[in-house]
Design a binder for these strands. Structure first.
Lengths: 199, 199
DNA sequence: TTGTTTGTTCTCCTGTTGTTCTCTATTCTA
DNA sequence: TAGAATAGAGAACAACAGGAGAACAAACAA
């Protein structure tokens, strides 16, 4: 979880411990008074930091909108967006749920998980049912395994080879052939950085 | 690992033992006061040494950034015992460190992680360098992938087949053959329940 | 509706804090 | 004994945390 500064921690403790506040969220001015602040703008920065840290719900302009995020739904892990299969768009799961990953896979840049469907990368040790952790990125190096959107339609997980004037997507399966596209047909959506499998 | 000097050890002990510090990392000035130092610059050198030694997280300029590495890891994760290779005993790591795993892999029963060495399970998608999560168990079902101790000497990761009077360990590599043992030659040490790979 | 409250955004300012230097003293070692 | 390692002091700097206040728009109340 993100590190809180002294003031952020202080505010969070007040929000969490004060019974009145739990019943009826305070306005910024009320909180300011309690904290000895004279500027709402200053408080707003702190509240925003708590929202970023996932401890307070975003309040979208509502008045008295400071609401704590319940412990159960506090963000941990990375979002699991759906299944990815060669030849089909990402099958989004109806309700985006988070899955837990090793700390080292939860970096600072936006990342998400997909469940692999199909055997097109089996020679790389990526099996049907495995979870892959993807770092969002529009660019990748040759040799990276990427999530690629083809013709704005299909999404697939393949090894990338960029050449002048063409892009080649290499499956890792002896029964499949590389696919060649024009650069404007392919959009890179992310780079494979981790894999998780349950037995 | 690097050896700590007297002062470094002293600072590390304070960081590790003080409950207040565990809750809220101190500023340099606070630590200086506690140590009887008058110069932040002096303390900074020691903290840097601890960062180099891997005992303290790098803090990238953030205030109150002194965080123990082990503190975060001690609470969660499972012990990483060493490398496992077909044909050799587990190569124990000098200092048992914990690695973070998805919550679902950290069950209630004792579990540990090993890093895979070699290609003997490559056809099962278990590659050299992968981490496998093992649940300690002396028994397993046919078809399970297990950590097996052979003749009290070698440890290996293989798929298990138990038959009356013999135990067969199946590698998953077209270039290797199954190995057949008498039941008293084999001790099952754990069952594979998860796999983690970093790219 | 109208006026007030309230959340949001912005710029500017201040003191704190981590970092990087150089310089000095002490201890240990070849 | 000379040199290296360890330890500290202090200055100077840049990044950071925290705050003030103005201006604005959305939300709310009368």
């Amino acid at each position: 979880m993100m590190r809180l500064t002294r003031r952020q921690q202080e505010i969070y403790d007040i929000l969490r411990s004060d019974a009145d506040i739990m019943q009826r969220p305070p306005t910024y001015d009320e909180l300011c008074q309690r904290l000895g602040l004279r500027s709402r703008g200053s408080l707003h920065k702190h509240i925003q930091a708590l929202v970023m840290a996932g401890l307070v719900e975003p309040m979208e302009g509502k008045q008295r909108g400071i609401r704590l995020v319940s412990a159960a739904q506090q963000e941990q892990g990375i979002p699991m967006l759906g299944r990815i299969a060669a030849g089909h768009p990402i099958e989004a799961v109806e309700q985006t749920e988070n899955i837990s990953v090793p700390d080292a896979m939860a970096g600072s840049k936006p990342r998400y998980a997909l469940q692999v469907s199909g055997d097109s990368m089996i020679d790389e040790g990526i099996f049907d049912g495995d979870y892959v952790v993807i770092e969002q990125s529009a660019a990748a190096d040759n040799g990276d395994i990427v999530v690629a959107l083809i013709d704005q339609q299909e999404t697939t997980l393949k090894r990338l080879e960029q050449q002048p004037g063409k892009i080649i997507l290499h499956p890792a399966n002896a029964t499949m052939s590389p696919m060649i596209y024009k650069p404007d047909q392919i959009q890179i959506q992310g780079i494979l950085i981790g894999l998780i499998r349950y037995y």
